[in-house]
Design a protein around this nucleic acid. Structure first.
Length: 466
RNA sequence: GGCGCGGUAGCCAAGUGGUAAGGCAAAGGUCUGCAAAACCUUUAUUCGUCGGUUCGAUUCCGACCCGCGCCUCCA
């Protein structure tokens, strides 16, 4: 079954394949590094990560570019207020973003690009757009003239031929010819950092950076472009207008957008006190894996209700998966292999993969794994599941973790070495044999204090870090 | 007002024109020196509301109600 994705352009779920050979050329919108990224941002970035992994699971190679927007109004405002250079200011939040991504196990794109390192490219592109009469200058700024791009609105499915009834209009509309026009180059204001160029002192508008960097590294027509739904309009619509005006070719074949995240059923906002960064959540004692699991478990096209209850239950679900894996690795199972279970495992793999292929239906993929897990546990209890079935079952978990990536615990909680732990376990076994349960429990407690949990099973003692 | 998404058990959530996956929570049970792990049973006659089509609708159509997003910077 081939991978299918919802394409915002067609508003349909379509079979996805790269246009050439086997490599997917994709671009996703990255963060504006004016502050720590919040949990809503990470919903989208987690979706992109899941998308990457599913593309790879389908045998595609990736050529993925993501931008870091390191120049914009807020950055300039904050940097100036703090008396820092743009570079010094954005370095802090860029690093914080990368750290957060690492904590959430988000793969980095093949190429991470910064807006400020492509100013020349942007100036060139704006110049070219000028030559083809897609731009006009006003009070030192340069704008893109939407009227020159008749297809404007094809992504957001808005019909802009009439008035924009009810739409609020930008305060600086007065220097634009049309409310829809957007800035390609913004004239520098007093005291602001700026770049010097053919267009006069200023800085690039937001939309142009994505077009320029995508075209530069990925060519005229991308296979896939992704981001959050809120970017559909105007950001991606504007990218299309610029890019297609430059190249005359379709900018991207697939546009894929992740829905919004709510917190406790409400939209996240600083005034409601439900605005969280990853750091805020980890500081409350939740693990990055639980956050990742929760963000990944709701299919990307459905808005995700982020709750602390949900985070807790994600943690419990992960524990159950880890326990299952540990059991597969440590239980002494009867020799041989059950044909029934060989078939059952293969079927679970198939269901898992098909669910992901179906527009990244992570909820259904998880259901396939849990259903299998429950039945396999039962079969292990009854002796029906045999040693020869374990490798395939572990393969299923490997496939699962290639996408969800939550099985390996993040923090090495215990300071003790494996050898020290094993020694204590041996001592406890001896104590138990001598029916010295007080000493046995003492050792259990001692290990527990170090974050080590012992489990007595039919196959012997096994331990894990909590 | 325009465009888009959604309303399924206590919470999260999948899904199909043929009679409701999965996770978490809760209760009871099995196993167990203790603990952990694991499993079993129970928890939606019902899928926002009202109509329509159909032998049959949660699933299709229409209307309405509610929530959310975008239309200005925004994941």
């Amino acid at each position: 079954m081939a991978l299918r994705l919802h394409n915002t352009l067609s508003q349909q779920v379509e079979v996805f394949t790269p246009s050439e050979r086997n490599t997917v050329r994709m671009y996703t919108c990255g963060p504006t590094v004016y502050d720590y990224a919040h949990i809503g941002n990470f919903r989208t970035f987690t979706f992109v990560d899941i998308l990457r992994r599913c593309l790879r699971l389908n045998g595609f190679a990736l050529e993925h570019v993501m931008n870091i927007t390191d120049v914009d109004d807020k950055i300039i405002r904050n940097a100036v207020a703090q008396g820092k250079t743009l570079a010094a200011y954005t370095a802090v939040y860029t690093q914080a973003f990368l750290d957060d991504c690492a904590a959430l196990r988000l793969e980095l794109p093949e190429r991470l690009v910064r807006a400020t390192e492509h100013i020349e490219d942007m100036l060139l592109a704006i110049g070219k757009l000028g030559e083809s009469r897609h731009t006009y200058a006003s009070e030192g700024s340069v704008y893109f003239r939407i009227a020159t791009f008749p297809e404007y609105g094809k992504l957001s499915h808005n019909d802009f031929r009439g008035n924009i009834a009810g739409a609020r209009v930008d305060v600086d509309t007065y220097d634009k010819a049309d409310a829809r026009d957007f800035a390609l180059w913004k004239a520098a204001k007093e005291g602001e950092p700026f770049w010097e160029g053919a267009l006069g002192p200023g800085r690039p508008g937001w939309h142009i950076e994505c077009s320029v960097m995508a075209l530069k590294y990925l060519g005229e027509t991308l296979d896939l472009h992704a981001g959050g739904v809120d970017l559909v309009f105007p950001h991606h619509e504007n990218e299309i207008a610029q890019s297609e005006s430059l190249t005359g070719k379709p900018f991207a074949r697939f546009w894929v957008h992740a829905e919004f995240l709510l917190v406790e059923g409400q939209k996240m906002s600083k005034s409601l006190g439900n605005y969280f960064t990853l750091r805020d959540i980890l500081a409350r004692g939740y693990t990055p894996e639980a956050v990742r699991y929760l963000l990944a478990s709701v299919p990307y096209r459905k808005s995700l209700n982020f709750t602390f209850d949900g985070l807790k239950s994600a943690g419990t679900a992960i524990d159950r998966l880890r326990n299952f894996k540990l059991r597969l690795e440590t239980d002494r199972l009867p020799d041989g292999a059950s044909e029934v279970w060989s078939a059952r495992t293969a079927s679970a793999q198939g269901t898992f993969r098909n669910a992901l292929d179906d527009d990244l239906n992570t909820a259904e993929a998880l259901a396939a794994v849990f259903e299998y897990l429950r039945d396999a546990n039962t079969a292990m209890d009854s002796g029906e599941f045999r040693a020869g079935n374990a490798p395939a079952a572990l393969d299923l978990l490997t496939a699962f973790d290639a996408v969800f990536d939550v099985l390996k615990p993040s923090a090495a909680a215990g300071q003790w070495s494996d050898a020290e732990i094993e020694a204590l376990i041996a001592e406890r076994a001896a104590a138990k044999k001598a029916r010295n349960f007080a000493r046995a429990d003492q050792i259990r407690q001692q290990l527990s204090d170090q974050g080590i949990l012992l489990e007595d099973t039919k196959s012997g003692v096994r331990w894990k870090r909590k």
